[in-house]
């Protein structure tokens, strides 16, 4: 049982403040969805937590089980249990998925300890079977020339292998057709359980038909402005984001 606490977080890109005081607690076993219009800071939030060097955290904190991760490099945060599923995963020519995942596993071992290759492949293949991914997939270079669906499948496979405590899924549904969306949703649902907390970042309600969240939050202008259960997502789908904007304007008027 773990807890990810985001405390009054402020994030800037260059001089420009994007996230302006966001607070959220995610416990293992919970699936939280953050919805909101474009340009409201959703992707910035996930990249800042994962440690992207272009994003500056100007104040606030992010803690895993009471320990701040903000002084850590991106790779240390990953080893501490954070997994960012990218909206646009990078292509890594010449590095096979198998070697990439192996390096990621090796990085989690103590200095001087060597990965057990046969146990690694056994585990890799069992995860692939679980996610219904063809074994030939792992000899391909990471995301190199992949379709949108293949890239997302690759993200899900990495997530399954790395077994994070918290997965931040950044607009995982963008640009996916319904079959690809289902692959992603099936993957997340398969891994969902008492050892994993999930933060789903999405623009559309569509993904939430497949991954049913425990909590739904609306993000607007760098803050969470409304929280509720899955019915909030349906309300947003029916009424659009203008409804939230009007409510906020009325409150601040």
């Amino acid at each position: 049982m773990s807890q990810l606490v985001i405390q009054n977080l402020h994030v800037s890109i260059g001089e420009k403040p994007i996230v302006k005081g966001l607070t959220l607690t995610i416990n293992s076993g919970e699936v939280h969805a953050i919805m909101g219009p474009n340009g409201t800071g959703k992707s910035t939030l996930s990249k800042a937590i994962a440690g992207h060097p272009d994003y500056t955290i100007t104040s606030g904190d992010v803690l895993i089980d009471g320990v701040s991760i903000l002084a850590q490099e991106a790779d240390e945060r990953a080893r501490a249990g954070i997994f960012l599923a990218f909206q646009y995963p990078s292509e890594i020519p010449g590095v096979s998925i198998a070697n990439f995942l192996r390096a990621a596993q090796q990085a989690r071992l103590a200095e001087g300890e060597e990965i057990d290759a046969s146990a690694y492949y056994k585990r890799l293949y069992s995860k692939m079977d679980l996610l219904k991914i063809d074994r030939k997939f792992t000899s391909r270079a990471v995301n190199d020339g992949f379709s949108g669906g293949e890239k997302k499948r690759c993200e899900i496979l990495q997530m399954a292998m790395l077994e994070p405590k918290f997965a931040l899924m950044d607009e995982t549904d963008s640009g996916l057709d319904i079959d690809a969306l289902r692959i992603v949703a099936d993957g997340v649902n398969t891994m969902r359980g008492p050892n994993l907390g999930v933060l789903l970042i999405t623009h559309y309600q569509r993904l939430l038909d497949y991954i049913v969240p425990d909590h739904v939050h609306v993000m607007y202008d760098g803050r969470l402005v409304k929280s509720g259960d899955k019915s909030l997502a349906l309300e947003l789908e029916a009424k659009g984001y203008d409804w939230i904007k009007k409510e906020l304007q009325a409150a601040t008027a």
Partner: peptide
């Protein structure tokens, strides 16, 4: 960053990218 976000330290990430090259 992509490699680092999977837990691979910067030095190893650069090494992997060079081998990929």
């Amino acid at each position: 960053f992509y490699l680092q976000s999977r837990g691979i330290a910067k030095e190893q990430a650069d090494e992997l990218l060079t081998f990929g090259f």
